[in-house]
Design a protein around this nucleic acid. Sequence first.
RNA 1: GUUCCCGUAGCUCAAUCGGAUAGAGCGUUGGCCUCCGGAGCCAAAGGUUGGGGGUUCGAGCCCCUCCGGGAACGCCA
Length: 560
Amino acid sequence: MASSVCMQLTRSNGSAPAPEGLSKKERQELRQKEAAAARERAQNLAEQVASKLSKQGLFADVQAQNGFVNMYFDTADVARRLLQGVHATAAGYGRGAPKTETVMVEYGQLNTHKDGHVGHLRNISLGDALSNILTHDGYQVLKATYIGDIGAHVMKWLWGYRKWHSHEELRADDGRWWEGIYVESNRAIGDNPEYEREYRELFAAWDRREPEVVELWNRTRDVSLRYLHYLFDQLDVHFDVWFYESQFEDPGREVVRELLEKGIAEVDQGAPVVRLDQKLGLERETYRTLILQRSDGTSLYQTKELALTRAKFEGYPIARALNVVDVRQTLYFQQVFKTLELLGYQEAVKSTHVPYEYVTLATGAMSSRQGNVVPYAEFAAELQERALATVRVKNPSMPPEQQERVARIVAQGAMKFGMLDRDNTKLLVFDREEALDFDGFSAPYVQYAHARACRILEQGPEIAWEELRAADLSEVETNLLETIGGFTDSVERASRELKPLHVVTYAYNLARSFNEFYRESPVLRSEGDTRNLRLALVYASRTTLANALGLLGIHAPEVM
RNA sequence: GUUCCCGUAGCUCAAUCGGAUAGAGCGUUGGCCUCCGGAGCCAAAGGUUGGGGGUUCGAGCCCCUCCGGGAACGCCA
């Protein structure tokens, strides 16, 4: 910080306006001269600051380098306090100051009557990690999901089921069965006007709440929901709040009525719409027009979203609501929030869309309508198989049940890590081989460092926490210590920027620092203060690795 | 047509408020198990940060422009 002050101070000194009439080359030379002079003045100032600071004795060392002032703390003192701090807080290490606000994070918006696929996986991994990170940073967090249990896809499914599959038993453990019927129906309806008409009729019957249709919907929905619960359980993702689209059809219509009454919405070609740009008096097209309902009166996704956005704030004491939804819905969310604002619901401003780029295949975008998705279950099974094979090679003497357990932890970790290891703004082209790679920048790498640390602590003596002495730390040890100390900042940044990636790279860097230390600094074969200190470093590493992985929704195995 | 996102090593990606010599993984080449578990460690090679202007003491990051890729934009979710 002090360094940038030095650089800025140099500005107010020498820079007289450049004389007129110089050639480009002359101007460039002049600039270079001035820049060099500025660097010199900065270094000069840095030296003066360094010399003053070093006399105060607050720091172990102060140096002026390249116009920056570098201040060094007393390593032994910092090390002792940091390590004792990690020990004292343990699972709470890295926590931010408690905050009063409650944040609701909505993610994992799966549909009933369909399967989950790897595209959903990125959403779920992101939302869950984000929730954990916000919690660790000190917020109260409500994890919420919003299940698509109604709408066109459900009606198409019901139509196809009734037509061709009604004799089959409903399957709570097989997402592909549900997906299959949907894809089949969707295709059939698209190809055949007669089917299309039947499907429309079914949709209308649903809207009239005809008992037979409601019963069929209820029955199939229940079983499909059991499957979704199973899916989330597999991922160790658990929600505090479950919203369902079907709950918001009527409240949605209510909002539409209100919008029409207040003259915010108008009817165009039979459908109620909000001409947002016009209402807001915007010259350039920005929010465009939001259609509120189909012209046949059936509700659209946005009909329900309007009501849901309100319901969150009316039903829960939250200060903010985050919607983790892929980037293609950006305009849509802006429209919904603006519409509510026009209605006078100020809460709309506290709703935030957290966009991320979606998962695509090398061959193009995934779409369940076209049936070219990588089903979650298939991918998970493949990972599990690969992980199990590896565990058997690495740990042949381990009991089979434990091998299975470890493989599950490794496979799930690799899966989530792979979904979180790039910025939200980056498209993820799904690559099987890459996803199945357990080396390098991956969850197993971090998990392995954790398992190594556990092994040492298991075999070593108790740590004498009151007698930590950290004299003569090596470069690798100092580096490890600094990395451990940076955890809180990394959590805070991830929370502030809503980017779990920061915790991912942190976890990896910590594992790397630990592995370097592991190679260079024998723990169990050292003695006295050195061993005690190294044990404390191992303890702090293990704790922090486990905490960081935990925030990502990834288990930290003690053996693997 | 309007708007948004991406472009960094052969490939996949990092880089804190604009800050010091742009870092990792994979792949390639060469090393390290009598030693806490080799899913590991060390080293080498690999860069005009898509091109060109500009702002700044300082730009991968900000502004303008061009090129390339992707997306959204009235009855899908």
